[in-house]
């Protein structure tokens, strides 16, 4: 593969990532300067595998976190995370900076892939599981190690600023991977109400969280 020289060695980006993690105070940008992710994405879009490796190092925890939360099973989550990155690689030449950040672009691919996996398996699975999923959502999120992550606290606060129904609808949809019709059943409210609450909730979150990292 040519073009390797156009990016920094992987070990350097790993080191940088560790340094960034140490800067917890700068948690508004937990994945590092977007400029670097943008640069890596640009290079990866030109077929630069080393740049893609750097991208993987920066975004793998984000992707795996999203996937694991929806899919839950560790082995299946690994498969999905791998699929997500292969998809990111395939689509990288078509990433357009004007249509959103690299982070949200990759997160979108990850979430959709995870949700689609859950739904295809769910249709063949005991529906009782949904009740379990729902209970899990009301439990505090795992991974206390990152409890002091400021960005996470901001998101928590933003979620807390929603009405109860808005928050439940958004969480069941995003974290639980449920379609809004399922959310309506789970919350025992009309489908139209769920749609409105998701929309209002997301608008509120957008306003609370601002432009983001």
């Amino acid at each position: 593969m040519s073009g390797v020289s156009s990016v920094r060695p992987i070990s350097a980006s790993r080191r940088r990532r560790r340094e960034q993690r140490d800067r917890v105070a700068d948690a508004a940008a937990p994945l590092g300067p977007t400029a670097e992710v943008d640069t890596l994405m640009l290079a990866a879009g030109r077929g630069d595998e080393a740049a893609f490796a750097g991208l993987y190092d920066q975004l793998a925890p984000l992707v795996h976190g999203i996937v694991l939360r929806a899919v839950r099973d560790p082995a299946r989550s690994e498969e999905v995370t791998q699929e997500v990155f292969v998809e990111v690689w395939r689509l990288a030449p078509r990433y357009e900076a004007g249509r959103g950040s690299v982070r949200s672009w990759v997160a979108t691919i990850a979430h959709r892939r995870a949700v689609d996996r859950v739904r295809s398996e769910q249709s063949a699975r005991d529906r009782d599981q949904r009740e379990t999923d729902r209970r899990d959502l009301t439990a505090p999120p795992p991974d206390e190690a990152v409890e002091n992550d400021l960005d996470r606290q901001r998101v928590r606060r933003a979620l807390g600023s929603l009405t109860e129904l808005q928050r439940q609808a958004v969480e069941l949809a995003y974290y639980g991977g449920h379609a809004y019709r399922e959310v309506a059943v789970l919350l025992d409210v009309a489908e139209g109400t769920v749609k409105t609450r998701i929309r209002d909730g997301l608008i509120r979150l957008r306003d609370e969280l601002g432009e983001g990292p």
Binding site: H64, R103, S104, P142, V146, Y174, G212
Partner: peptide, 8 residues
């Protein structure tokens, strides 16, 4: 939505 992914 991507901001909601806070469990890396």
């Amino acid at each position: 939505a991507a901001r909601l992914a806070v469990d890396p």
